[in-house]
Design a protein around this nucleic acid. Structure first.
Lengths: 206, 206
DNA sequence: GTTATTTATTGATTCAAATCAATGGATTGT
DNA sequence: ACAATCCATTGATTTGAATCAATAAATAAC
């Protein structure tokens, strides 16, 4: 049977290739495997996020709830890291929900374990910094996208960069990720396919 | 005359009180003092941001330019740190302008110096991590505000939390920071003062 | 396989904010 | 002090997206 820590180890080593094997072993001892079933919540507003999770398999989502309206901030799929990092770092209550869209297995490192690692395991400070930096870059790109691009541009980008996500996630959630209503996304889609139909030669009559 | 590194030293020590004096001295040697005059640009789109700057005094702003329209992402005042951190970290071209709103003096640490510090100065990894984490928390809060709050709510918050900023920055820049046109901010302001007038007892006739 | 429920599409209407336009105030430069 | 430029306010109009509403399609439950 497969080692559950294999993928998370690969992930951390990709961040810093010269990471020492012994230090990794010390760190790995503190990791926790968790499973979640579709439809459940990993985190709710008011709770303090207590871990950083690497996803072995599955799909989760983070969203705000404003006036009964969901605003999706992110989808997280297998082989990526997720957390309510803001809550985790600041030790303050989350504003986000995190819900489980597909049965999911994660490898968690909790806050105390991470602080322990920072104090006692050489290299861990660097990995911690690199993770923080990577998460910053991701958030920043998302932010730029929300400020500079139209919902339609964002949708096309998701189509190109994460085509699997479109298939795995209901459209109304994608809409809330793009910052529009489900109706608006439906109209964006029909606009795009109409445009594509006009550009293509007519295949039906010949 | 005052030590120009005094404030930046205080800042870093506030992040990590047990920072070692010798290590600080080693780090301080690589810092650079720079001055900018109002109206100039520190960074333009296409350039790679090469430093993290602590502001001794002054005021700068970062903004996107989309279809000839400015979208202000942040104002930075004295005693805070600024950078196009996304560009700095990823070594990719900036999408942002950074312009100088008041004569400004900064203490810069450039990219190579920082990498040198990470390799050679103990403690610096931790400070680097803490800076990354702080910047993440700030960006995350800004993000949440843009997604969850109305422009009016954001304006009231700026009024309360950074009243000096309102005085130092032209209103159309504040508008672009709130995500509305100058006309819309003007109307928000008149709406607020009208509400306040109704709540207050009539002071004119008695 | 049928029913029930959820999700997606399409159209009509409403609404909030952007745009356009004009004026008045404030700031800057000489 | 004056002109010139920039900035803020206010009103009228336009516009794009949200809302409301109804139907169709897809998915899940039995």
């Amino acid at each position: 049977m497969g080692d559950k820590f294999e993928k998370v180890k690969t992930f951390y080593f990709s961040l810093w290739p010269s990471l020492n094997e012994d230090n990794w072993s010390a760190f790995e001892k503190r990791l926790i495997v968790k499973k979640y079933e579709k439809g459940n919540y990993i985190l709710r507003p008011g709770e303090v996020c207590n871990c950083i999770s690497f996803i072995n398999y599955g799909l989760v989502r983070s969203y705000y709830l404003v006036d009964g309206r969901e605003i999706t901030t992110n989808f997280f799929v297998e082989d990526s890291v997720f957390s309510n990092y803001q809550s985790f770092l600041s030790r303050t209550p989350s504003l986000l929900y995190t819900d489980v869209l597909e049965d999911t297995e994660v490898i968690d490192v909790d806050y105390d374990s991470l602080q322990y690692a920072y104090e006692n395991i050489p290299d861990s400070e660097r990995v911690g910094r690199l993770v923080a930096e990577q998460l910053y870059i991701l958030l920043s790109a998302r932010n730029a996208s929300l400020l500079m691009e139209t919902p339609e541009q964002r949708y096309i980008k998701v189509l190109q960069e994460k085509p699997d996500l479109i298939r795995r996630v209901p459209q109304y959630m994608v809409a809330s990720y793009l910052g529009v209503t489900p109706e608006a996304l439906s109209r964006i889609r029909s606009r795009i396919s109409k445009r594509n139909a006009e550009l293509l030669p007519d295949t039906s009559s010949r």
